[in-house]
Design a protein around this nucleic acid. Structure first.
Lengths: 170, 170
DNA sequence: CATTAATTTCAAAAAAAAATGAAAAGTGCA
DNA sequence: TGCACTTTTCATTTTTTTTTGAAATTAATG
């Protein structure tokens, strides 16, 4: 009980309030651009400027969100490889640090959220080609051209997006 | 009144049902990836494989959505430059065709939805720099490095995204 | 083991986003 | 100008997403 964790044993120094607020704001917006819930942005924003690893309870109470949200949010961030856990001796709780390499975050996001859509898009385009009408010349040309454009779109995206993630050596 | 538009005077031929369904499905997903509502994807998907321009009422009734949704959705698509209007003699209603150059759609989307966020991000980072603590050496170095990474992120994005749109000559 | 602390899960509540449709506004034509 | 048709607007409803918190699960410790 003496090692109860709200006795912050090894705290280096604490994030200036102003910096913390701006950081949370920044990442809430960024994550929401990626379609992720506000709580995920809040957690990442809080961790980003924190020199010390934080446990879930600290995160939830600092952000005034429920432990359910915190747990869910951390799960999302873990799956995006946007946080890492750090071992704190004498404390059995998990402690979290922000992964500050955005490249990892984005490439995981691309792999998990975007590329699967590209895959299913390819299937869908195949099905389109099968249902192409063949009777009328002018008619089938119109549809072919449209389908061709969709193919180019998916092909280009499939090449460009991963390249993009690679370029992001931040 | 004789020119009532459901008498489809100049209809070339009609989209095969299967193609239409797949197209709507495709674009509903794509638009939702961009954070746009389902109705916007439905409308664009319907227009994409339609050789003839359609008026709002036709779109709404074909998709079984309200005219309010149709109006809103077309407004969004117009602002993205994803549809063009075409004049139909003897009919005063607006008629819509899909703009099949995706490049335009994406570059408008970037300009309208992403770049403004990048702008405000720059401001936010400036504010962060102002609230950087200066007392402690090690401390301020940690924060500086983090801020530096945010700067690189916004700078890289600001250069990469427009380039991306340019590459998309589909 | 049994206990207690930490975390996850998930049904219900709250909040946010989207769709509806009727009323208001706009538009062209006689 | 006035009428009839078309489109937009927006308060309300519906749907979807997110959050909450209590219960269930998991895991460490004495």
């Amino acid at each position: 009980m003496a090692s109860k964790a709200n006795i912050a044993i090894q705290s280096k120094y604490s994030t200036p309030k102003e910096l913390e607020v701006e950081s949370i704001d920044f990442f809430v917006r960024l994550m929401s651009l990626l379609g992720l819930p506000r709580s995920v942005g809040e957690i990442y924003g809080l961790l980003y400027f924190n020199p010390d690893a934080m446990c879930m309870e600290q995160i939830a109470s600092k952000l005034r969100i429920s432990i359910g949200s915190a747990s869910q949010g951390l799960k999302t961030l873990r799956s995006l490889k946007a946080v890492k856990t750090s071992y704190v001796p004498g404390d059995r709780r998990d402690h979290y640090l922000a992964e500050s390499e955005f490249r990892r975050l984005f490439s995981t996001f691309l792999k998990d959220e975007i590329l699967p859509h590209l895959e299913s898009a390819k299937d869908r385009i195949s099905r389109m080609e099968e249902s192409l009408p063949t009777e009328n010349e002018e008619q089938s040309e119109f549809y072919s051209i449209r389908i061709e454009k969709l193919k180019r779109l998916t092909k280009t995206s499939g090449r460009l997006l991963p390249a993009l993630a690679g370029l992001l050596r931040l």
